[in-house]
C-alpha cells in the first residue's frame, strides 16, 4: 500500500514536470511563429503535407456526399432557378453579341498595333480539399503544391474572378488565402474611372475598398480589377463590382463564386526581369577578357 502511494506520487511529480515542459514548448512555438513567421509557415505547411494524406481518404467521400446532398436540395427550387436562368440567358444573349463585336474590334486593333501580349501567363488547376474550418480566417487547401510549380504569392482565380493568393506552399498541397480574410489586402483599379484603392478583407463577402484616392466617378456596378501594383498579382484580373453599403461606404461584390468553389486555377507568372541600376552592360569591367 505504501509502495502504491509512492509510485502514485512519483507519477504525479513526473506529470507536473511534463505539463511544465509542454507549456513552455507551446509558448515557444507561438512566440516563434510571431518572431520568425516564414519559418513557422514552412513548419505549418510541412505538417499539413505530412498529415494531409491521412485526412484525404476520409475527407473525399464525405465531401462528395455533402456536395450531393446540397445538389439534391437545390432540386427543390428548380422552378425558380429555371425562371432566373431564362431571364439571365436573355440578358446574356445581348452581352454575347456585344462581346463578339468587341472581340473583332480588339483583334483588328491588336493587329494594327502589332502588340505582343504577355505569353508567359500559364495556369495550373487544383481542387479545393479543405476549408479553413475556423471562423476567424478565410482560406482553403488545394491539392497542388511546389512540385506542380505553385509559388508563394501566386494569384488564384476561379473561372471568373480572383479568389485570393497562395500563402504557404508544401510539396503536394498549398494554402489559398481568400480576399475576404482579414490579412488580405490587394491593390486595385476601378474601371472605367481609373481610381486606385485597396481591397481589404474583413471576414465578410463584400470587403471594403480602402484608401480610395477619390470618389469621383466611382459608382455602384463599376468593375474592380487588380492594378498589379506591388508586383504580387498580375494586372487586370477581375475582382468584382463596386457596391455601396447602407452607410455609404464603398465595398466590392466579389466576382468569384465562393459558395461553389471546387476547382481553382493558380496563375504561373514568370516574373519580369528587373532592370535595377545601370548595370555592367556599358563600359569595360575589370577582367573583362572572359
Amino acid at each position: 500500500m505504501a509502495q502504491d502511494t509512492s509510485t502514485a506520487n512519483a507519477w504525479k511529480v513526473l506529470r507536473r514536470f511534463l505539463v511544465g515542459i509542454l507549456f513552455v514548448l507551446l509558448l515557444g512555438v507561438f512566440l516563434l511563429s510571431r518572431i520568425d513567421n516564414p519559418r513557422a509557415e514552412r513548419f505549418r505547411m510541412a505538417l499539413v503535407d505530412r498529415f494531409f494524406p491521412s485526412f484525404e481518404w476520409a475527407l473525399v467521400p464525405v465531401t462528395s456526399m455533402t456536395r450531393m446532398v446540397s445538389d439534391f436540395q437545390s432540386y427543390t427550387r428548380v422552378y425558380e432557378q429555371n425562371q432566373e436562368l431564362r431571364g439571365e440567358l436573355q440578358r446574356m444573349k445581348g452581352w454575347r453579341e456585344a462581346a463578339l463585336q468587341l472581340e473583332q474590334k480588339n483583334a483588328q486593333l491588336l493587329a494594327l498595333n502589332n502588340v505582343k501580349l504577355n505569353p508567359r501567363l500559364a495556369f495550373i488547376t487544383g481542387e479545393v480539399m479543405t476549408d479553413s474550418g475556423s471562423p476567424f480566417s478565410q482560406s482553403a487547401l488545394v491539392n497542388i503544391g511546389r512540385q506542380d510549380g505553385v509559388r508563394d504569392g501566386s494569384a488564384a482565380v476561379d473561372g471568373l474572378g480572383l479568389v485570393g493568393r497562395i500563402a504557404g506552399v508544401g510539396e503536394v498541397t498549398s494554402r489559398i488565402l481568400f480576399l475576404s480574410d482579414v490579412s488580405s489586402s490587394v491593390p486595385v483599379v476601378i474601371v472605367p474611372s481609373g481610381r486606385r484603392a485597396i481591397v481589404r478583407g474583413d471576414n465578410s463577402i463584400v470587403p471594403p475598398l480602402d484608401f480610395l484616392d477619390s470618389e469621383a466617378g466611382v459608382q455602384a456596378g463599376s468593375r474592380v480589377i487588380t492594378s498589379g501594383d506591388g508586383g504580387v498579382f498580375p494586372a487586370d484580373i477581375l475582382i468584382g463590382q463596386v457596391a455601396i453599403d447602407p452607410r455609404g461606404h464603398f465595398r466590392v461584390r466579389l466576382a468569384a463564386d465562393y459558395e461553389n468553389l471546387e476547382f481553382i486555377r493558380v496563375l504561373k507568372v514568370t516574373p519580369r526581369e528587373d532592370i535595377g541600376g545601370p548595370g555592367e552592360i556599358i563600359g569595360i569591367t575589370e577582367g573583362g577578357e572572359e
Partner: peptide, 21 residues
Amino acid sequence: GFISIGIPIIPMGLAANSIGF
C-alpha cells in the same frame, strides 16, 4: 481528435458569410 479536425475542414460553405463551425 482526428475527426474533430476533419469535420470543420470539410470544404462546404467557403464564403465568408456562411455559418462557421
